[in-house]
Simulated assay, not measured.
Amino acid sequence: MRISELSSRSGVSTASIKYYTREGLLPAGERTGYNQTEYTDAHLQRLRLIRSLIDVGGLPVAAVARVLTAVDTPELPLGEVLGVAQHALPQAIAPPSAQAVQRAEAFVAEHGWHVHDGNPGLRAVAGVLDGWAGVGREDLVSVLPAYARAADIVAAADVDAVSAGIRAAAEGGDRDSAAQTVVVGTVLGDQLLAGLRRIAQEHAATQRYGLNPPTDRSTP
């Protein structure tokens, strides 16, 4: 297909397609003549992945490039692809305090989790602990065990999906598909969890307190 058709089918402007190609996110099409380039359905699928990571996952282009490089590196183990995807997720600008990091590490050890020191989740948890302390709500630390139990369930589901991809790749399947499962599950999974949490919060509040659904105030 020509770039105009690729743009129409993907919903991505031709200027963005060319930009993604220059930045290495999208493989170049096949030159078939002067000022003529042909693209395939693989380019279409790649564009949809790029836009999902940007539009839904909220990743900047530079982070998408790092993630896709990991996907495109056949010798990179899927566990390392997971690490790249985790580090690509948006993080708080201000670094957490050393005390909060120590508290986060202590909680992780107490819960029985084993992770490396550079796991970005440690910084995220520590940042929340600092935030609670800053507003005088350290009592909210009491929710951590329940949140950790929920995280265990979600993590098990994530690993099950990745394991299915690994088995498929080992049986002659597409390794790139397994790597994409890791990336999409990690990046879009954060948004999925946030959405499900909002839904569950309203349901739980309604069940417990008989509250009416809130009015949508997103528009005047």
Rank of each mutant, 00 (worst) to 15 (best):
S177I: 02
S177M: 08
A109F: 01
G134E: 08
S142R: 09
G118I: 04
D160F: 01
H116T: 12
I166L: 15
A146G: 10
A133L: 00
V125T: 12
A155R: 07
P145Y: 10
R123F: 09
A151N: 13
G136W: 00
H114P: 07
A109H: 09
Y147S: 07
D160I: 02
V101S: 03
V159I: 13
G136H: 00
G127H: 09
A124E: 14
R167C: 11
A170R: 11
A133C: 00
V108H: 02
G127R: 09
A156E: 15
L144V: 10
G118E: 15
A126L: 03
V162K: 08
A169N: 05
E138A: 06
V154K: 04
F107M: 08
G127Y: 09
W132E: 03
Y147N: 07
E105S: 07
H111K: 11
Q102D: 12
A169D: 05
R123M: 12
S163E: 14
G131V: 01
A106F: 01
R137G: 01
F107D: 11
L122Q: 13
G112K: 08
D139V: 02
A161R: 05
E105N: 06
A170P: 01
V101M: 04
V108R: 06
H116C: 13
R123P: 09
G165K: 09
V135S: 01
A106N: 13
Y147F: 08
L140E: 07
L122D: 14
R175I: 09
E171A: 15
G127T: 10
R175S: 15
G118F: 14
V162N: 10
H116F: 13
D174S: 11
G136C: 00
E105A: 03
A164Y: 11
D176F: 02
L144M: 06
V115G: 15
G165R: 04
P145G: 13
A155T: 03
P120V: 07
R137V: 01
N119P: 07
V101E: 11
L122N: 14
A168F: 11
R137K: 03
D174T: 02
A104V: 01
R103L: 05
G127V: 03
E105I: 01
G131Q: 06
G121M: 11
V128S: 10
D174A: 11
A106G: 12
D117C: 06
G127N: 08
G121W: 07
A168Y: 10
P145S: 08
P120C: 08
S177V: 06
A126P: 12
I166S: 12
V115Q: 13
A104M: 01
S163Q: 11
A151T: 09
D158S: 09
A150P: 04
E110K: 10
A170Y: 03
D152S: 12
S163K: 05
E110A: 15
A106M: 07
A146Y: 08
D117V: 06
L122E: 13
Q99Y: 00
D174K: 03
A170D: 15
I166P: 04
R103E: 14
R103F: 00
Q102L: 07
G121T: 06
V154E: 12
D158L: 04
I153Q: 13
R175W: 13
P120G: 13
D174C: 09
R123A: 15
V143R: 06
L129T: 05
R137A: 05
A151I: 02
A146R: 06
Q102Y: 00
N119R: 14
A150R: 05
A178I: 01
D158P: 04
V159T: 11
R149K: 12
G131F: 00
W113D: 15
A150Y: 05
